[in-house]
Nucleic acid binder design. Structure first.
Length: 453
DNA sequence: CGACGGGACGC
DNA sequence: CGACGGGACGC
């Protein structure tokens, strides 16, 4: 599944024309071509059409929105799928299952919560997992992120930082019991659920592992949201989450038609049960083949006061720092350092006077010079770096190398870059010392055959 | 010291 | 049920 296709395959009424298709599909993006397949002799439509978009995310969005729509009064609803590649002989519909999971390369220091935080900006994440060494438990630097919709996965692939090398994940090639539950279900069909769950045992014995949990704001509430791709009944959700003591509330979220939206809310009367439930049931397959996503949601307790928010940000900063520095230097941030950062209301503290902020150069500007920056003891956040390095003008882009303490600053003007280097080399920003040097030219893309699309 | 690569899952 | 025309960069 290398290229995520930007071409749609549509089954329409034979009376639908290319112009009608173009009109209705072009609201979702740049339609590069519409082709209705016609009988060679009679020139009549065979009720099949291809719609090519500039981007895969546009095609996915159009598919999600147009599938099942009636284009013209009196005609049948259309079916819309991502088209199989031209070379493919298989004419099986491409299922959402194959379009909603991405495969990424991540720093080995990433926890599953870090992975989720990084990729949630492209859509609600149903489930994510990091590939780990099964005996030592250490990360292999690879992860999977499952979204709810193909357009979200496509969006992530198109827009996430290139260093993550995000691609569509190959579907799991294992089909045992899984198939009878998810295999027969296609988009838009309701899957009834009256299975009893007692046949699916899951371990309750081991203690909860708190390593890798997210200590940042919004986590650790008594309230959980459950997302599921297959429709589940209230009773199913109830009996599953009631296995953990302390459940005080359980409700399936329904739409106006009374159909399950694939979401449920569960609340426990204590934090421990909620943490345990998330730990044990997030990613659990129920029924087999249907992964549940379980996440903390705001339980209504006030976390929004400025003092509370700042306190949480401070804790978050300490956690980040601890993660980067490792257990050896896991000391708590000095109180006065933290307080002064908060009271200044500024995100940048430095030992040098900085010029005022300047606008960034357009993203498509040609790079005239790149700076290579080494951070000690840990890298600064992207927004802080942009704030600092833009002040010399013509900054195009800040790039951090994930999992490394280095980054690249791309400038559209050589003099601006040189001045930034002269001013910032050896300086300390927010407690982080920076070496700022000219970057070596990027490694050549090597002479491989250029890929189309 | 501090460099951009690489790639597959016991659900 | 419902799967592939037309046209031709430059290596």
């Amino acid at each position: 599944t290398r290229p995520t296709s930007s071409r749609l395959f549509a089954v329409t009424s034979r009376s639908i024309t290319e112009d009608e298709l173009r009109d209705s599909f072009s609201v979702f993006g740049d339609v590069q071509g519409v082709w209705v397949v016609k009988d060679k002799q009679t020139k009549e439509s065979k009720g099949i059409a291809y719609v090519k978009f500039a981007k895969s995310s546009q095609a996915c969005l159009a598919m999600e929105e147009m599938h099942g729509k009636v284009l013209m009064d009196g005609t049948k609803p259309i079916k819309v799928f991502i088209a199989q590649s031209r070379s493919s002989n298989r004419h099986r519909d491409v299922e959402d299952e194959e379009l909603t999971r991405i495969f990424v390369m991540i720093p080995k220091t990433f926890t599953e919560e870090d992975l989720k935080d990084t990729f949630k900006e492209y859509g609600e994440i149903e489930y994510c997992v990091i590939i780990k060494n099964k005996s030592t438990g250490e990360s292999k630097g690879l992860g999977y992120v499952r979204y709810h919709k193909p357009s979200q996965a496509a969006h992530a692939i198109e827009n996430c930082d290139k260093t993550y090398r995000a691609i569509l994940a190959e579907p799991r090639t294992k089909t045992t019991v899984t198939e009878e539950y998810s295999g027969g279900m296609s988009r838009g069909e309701y899957m009834g659920g009256n299975d009893s769950m007692n046949q699916y045992a899951f371990p309750m014995a081991e203690p909860v592992n708190y390593q890798g949990m997210d200590y940042r704001s919004g986590d650790f509430t008594r309230c959980l949201m459950i997302s599921t791709r297959a429709a589940l009944s209230q009773e199913q959700i109830f009996s599953l989450f009631d296995l953990i003591p302390g459940m005080e509330y359980c409700e399936l979220q329904r739409d106006n038609y009374g159909m399950s939206k694939g979401h449920a809310l569960v609340r426990y009367n204590n934090l421990g049960s909620a943490v345990y439930a998330k730990e044990k049931l997030n990613g659990f397959e129920y029924p087999p083949g249907n992964r549940l996503a379980v996440n903390f949601v705001d339980d209504g307790e006030d976390r929004s006061s400025p003092v509370s928010r700042m306190a949480m940000q401070l804790v978050a900063a300490q956690m980040m720092s601890a993660v980067w520095n490792g257990p050896a230097t896991n000391q708590v941030m000095k109180p006065h350092q933290g307080y002064s950062a908060v009271s200044n209301m500024s995100r940048v503290q430095t030992d040098v006077n900085l010029p005022p902020l300047k606008k960034l150069a357009p993203p498509d500007s040609k790079s005239k010079e790149r700076l290579f920056v080494v951070f000690s003891p840990s890298p600064l956040p992207l927004d802080v770096l942009e704030d600092v390095f833009c002040r010399f003008g013509s900054l195009i882009e800040v790039h951090l190398v994930p999992g490394r303490k280095v980054g690249y600053m791309k400038y559209a003007d050589k003099q601006c870059a040189d001045e930034a280097m002269a001013v910032l080399h050896g300086r300390v920003v927010n407690g982080v010392k920076m070496k700022v040097m000219l970057a070596d030219p990027p490694r050549e893309e090597s002479h491989k055959r250029p890929r189309t699309t």
